[in-house]
Structures are given as structure tokens and as C-alpha cells.
Design a protein around this nucleic acid. Structure first.
Lengths: 196, 196
DNA sequence: CGACACATGTAACACGTTACATGATTTG
DNA sequence: CAAATCATGTAACGTGTTACATGTGTCG
């Protein structure tokens, strides 16, 4: 959903061709989210179909150039002024995994949490290393690269905090109901609790 | 990508039918990520095609029941033991938006940030209200519901922290290069910096 | 020359959403 | 009875990924 808007936003800076758009996108996001070239072309086709961009012929080097239309400009403006909705957040695979690990018998939730934390901490170290190897180009896009990287760091840290929180909560829950539970136990317990 | 595994994990608890699977999924995630019923059926069809589940006829009430296969069980086990990869994180719309807002001239980044923070804080209040209205059923799935809700809270808090961080960084950057910049300015500055 | 980056596409597929059709069962 | 919910599907569409085809330019 965000590729369309990103391409439109880039085209607000002036007409560009497909390959160039990918380059600009990846420069600004520090190659955090590699963008398939093929998708750029298909997206451009769809944007043109919807009247948000239009083919602007070829430039001096023979590149197939697209430019944004007025409708497209409105779209970008709307994108920038509308906050990202949290009412329907994208599915969080980790949250789903833990939610199910907790309720499905025979899964060692503790191990799942530990492995995830370890993986996430490795990622954090990689981010730190990336940040030290740091901005080289001196371009203004270094700023956005830094911000994107920080966003990864912040969300990885939040993930680790959440994992710790989960562990603590599970320990408390385990104290209240110490028994290892089989599928039959779960059913029995459910009945039991309904009975209250 | 996570719906497949979620359905498989649920089927490890025993054979179920489509509608039931949706109910179980939503109960565990507290309806945070509503799951379209249609998708359950199409996903079940694909899972059967791939040999991860198999139709198990009809139960006493005539429901079309599916059960997990051995291959499916391996798949679930692999899912639970493999940490969610952070090497290719899903595209973060907000991060992309800010990264582009910073580099595209004519966009007031400050306003974008403020609006987003306001929206996210509203979401946080909603989460708090939800949490107070709290677990009613007394079912064991209340635990996972609470954890999922906490994950939303943690990531919303991280988002706000990141937004503050962005504001601070942008203020610093503005002090170093105070001039409002047009597209031409950007190009000129880029040339200037390349020249060094 | 041969390998590699640049550049433009297309096709097939996976996943997800929305909307519709259809019927049974439950409940006010 | 009427409306809502339960239940099983299907069709169309949007978005994204991978892989392939094809050609140009550049550089060792």
C-alpha cells in the first residue's frame, strides 16, 4: 500500500523513470526495504491507469519518464496530512505467534520467547554497526536514512521490552496454575472456569 | 503470511471447521486483527492442496471439518522454533512517509509528526480503555488477548518515542541549515556537497 | 570479449480484502 | 414471521514477489 504513495511523492520532485525511482526510494530508506524493479514498472502502469501519473515521453538519454498529475498531487497531499491509522494495524506475526503459543498445548513458550529475543538483539547489534559505518554520501537523504534506521531500533527495543513483559506475565500465570497442561487439561480447566 | 501458520497451529488442538477457526483466532487476538471468513476457506483449500491439512469429513453437526497432517505439524513446529526474521522487516508505512516527507520539498514534516503523534496517543488511550473493560470470559485465551494488547501498547509507545526523536533531530538539522529549501536549493546543495 | 550494471518490461504466483450467493439455524 | 447469526463457499480485484526475457552500455 505504501509503494504507490512513495513513488508519487518522489515524482513530486520532478519527472523520473522507473529504475531511477527505485534508486531514489532505496537511497532514502537506506535499502532497508529493497524495492523490486519489476514492481516499480507495474505500479507505474497502475498509477497511470488511475490517472495519478502520466507518461512524459523520453528524456535526453531515452529513458521512459513519468510525471505526476494534479490528481496525483492531491493524493500525495492527502497521504502526508492523514496519520497512519492504528485502527487496523497490519498483522504482527510475532504477536500472533506468541498468542497462539500460549494457548496451544505442547509449545514451549519460554523457548519461543528466548529465541526471539536473541534474534532481535542480534538485529539491534547489526543496526548499531550499520549506524557506525554510517552516512557516507553527505547527501541530504542521509537524514532520512538515519531516521529510518532509528525507527528499526526503536521498534526492536520495544519488541524486547514486550518479550520481557510476556515472560514476567507468564511466570505469574505459571505460579497460579503450576501444572503442565495437556489438551485435555485445557478443556477441563475451561469447563471448570465456566462452572464458577 | 501468518494466517496459514495460525490456522495450522489452531488445528493442532484438534480438527475444526472454517467458521470455528475464525472464532478461535479472533478470540485469541481479541479481534485485534479481524480475520475474514472467506480467507479462512481459501486458505484451508490451499493448505489442503499443499498437503498440510486434510478434509476430515463432517462432524456430528454436519460441519466440514479439517485436520492437520504430519507435514502440517512439522510446519507448525518449524514456525514456533524459528524466530521472526528482522532481516527483511515488513515495510513500515510511517517510517517511509517520514523518510519521504524529509526529502520531498514543500512538505511540512513538523505537521506530519504532530498529527501522527496525536493519532497514536488517541490509540493508546483506546488501548487503555479496552484493557480496563478488560477480560470478561475467564477463558485461558484472556492471557493471549492481554499480551496482544500489550504488544500494541508497546509499539505505539515506541512510535511516539521515535516521533519525538525525529522532531529533535530535525530541529538540530534546521539549526545547521536554517533556510527553507526549494527543489532548486536541494539540487544546488547537492552539487555543492559533491564538489567538496 | 565477457561480466556486470543499467533499463524496461511481462508472466505466474501468493496472499489478502471485499463483495456476493446461498442456505440452515436461532431468537426476539 | 422477520431478522440476525451461523456456515460454506466463489469471484473479482489489489498488491507484492519471483523469475524470466531482452537489450544497452561500460569496464577490466
Amino acid at each position: 500500500m505504501s509503494v504507490k504513495q512513495a513513488l508519487l511523492a518522489l515524482l513530486e520532485q520532478g519527472p523520473m523513470y522507473g529504475y531511477q525511482l527505485r534508486g531514489e526510494f532505496e537511497q532514502r530508506t537506506g535499502s532497508t526495504w529493497p524495492l523490486n524493479v519489476g514492481q516499480v514498472y507495474t505500479t507505474l502502469t497502475r498509477l497511470e491507469r488511475d490517472g495519478l501519473v502520466e507518461g512524459a515521453g523520453s528524456d535526453a538519454d531515452g529513458h521512459v519518464v513519468y510525471s505526476i498529475t494534479d490528481t496525483g498531487r492531491e493524493e500525495v497531499a492527502a497521504w502526508f496530512t492523514t496519520p497512519v491509522a492504528r485502527t487496523q494495524p497490519p498483522r504482527d506475526e510475532l504477536a500472533i505467534k506468541l498468542a497462539l503459543a500460549v494457548t496451544v498445548p505442547g509449545v514451549d513458550v519460554g523457548t519461543v520467547i528466548q529465541q526471539q529475543r536473541s534474534a532481535t538483539m542480534t538485529a539491534l547489534q547489526d543496526y548499531a554497526r550499520l549506524k557506525r559505518s554510517g552516512p557516507v554520501s553527505g547527501q541530504p537523504s542521509d537524514l532520512s536514512w538515519g531516521l529510518v534506521l532509528d525507527s528499526l531500533v526503536f521498534s526492536a527495543e520495544a519488541e524486547i521490552r514486550w518479550l520481557d513483559h510476556c515472560e514476567a506475565r507468564l511466570r505469574r500465570a505459571a505460579l497460579e496454575r503450576p501444572a503442565a497442561r495437556t489438551a485435555r487439561d485445557v478443556a477441563a480447566t475451561a469447563d471448570e472456569e465456566v462452572a464458577r
